[in-house]
Amino acid sequence: MSDLQTATQREACDELRELLPAFGLGAADPDEATWVKSRLADCPEAAQELTAYAALAEVMLYSAPPVRPPAYLAERLRAALAQAQHRPEPAVDRPQRRWLASRLPALAALALAVLLLAGGLLAAQVAGLRSQQRELAAQVERQSALLAAVGEGTYLRVTLPAGPAGEAAGAEATVICDPERSVGVVYARNMPPLPAGQAYQVWLIRGEERTSAGLFHVSEEGRGLLTFQAPLPMRQYDSVGITMEPATGSPAPTTSAVVRGPLYGQEY
């Protein structure tokens, strides 16, 4: 290699080394990054230096001020996982989840209101519910401090009577929702015991269309709770039904309703 070539290469390596810190951090512009990658093989010392900057960037991943995530985040993740088990992609799209996340306190208020409907039996209910319900109730309790910040809402509260499959047990359910929004809570009572591998599925009914609002299990006393997010504002739905379905859920009801009733016309 001639002196001229050596000098040219040295200059290129010097130029390369000037870009290495930014490249290691991922801050080089695309054309710069392409150029760096193309030149690294010619400058062994630069490659070594890049390793040091990449290591620095790795340590920076751990440099955020430590903050404890909210306790309910684990439950949210667990719920999202349950949905991911059923569908290739999360069932709730990003804007909806963002909307939901920003209104968790309101959801907690709704859920707590439902629990209070049982008249002071919150502790007994919590103890009797299966793990999912227990965790949700715990979430409600954790969020109760936020309730003071939640303004008065114009919520619809409707009691749904037993359907053909729930008459013998005297099943019923209360739905609380805001007609102008797409979140709500279903609190079911006196539900027949679920066979293994089965769950109750809540259906939002709009004409002939049935949309699943989610699955829930019940306690030994037949109580169950579900907070849900609907695709549309609740005023778009005519009625709500609950059927017994496989624990993974069904695309449409496959059994007779355990609870079923209109959302409007009996508001109190």
Binding site: P69, L73, R76, L77, A80, R97, A101
Partner: peptide
């Protein structure tokens, strides 16, 4: 709220 979403 966004951090929770990103974490999830």
């Amino acid at each position: 709220a966004l951090a929770e979403e990103a974490t999830q």
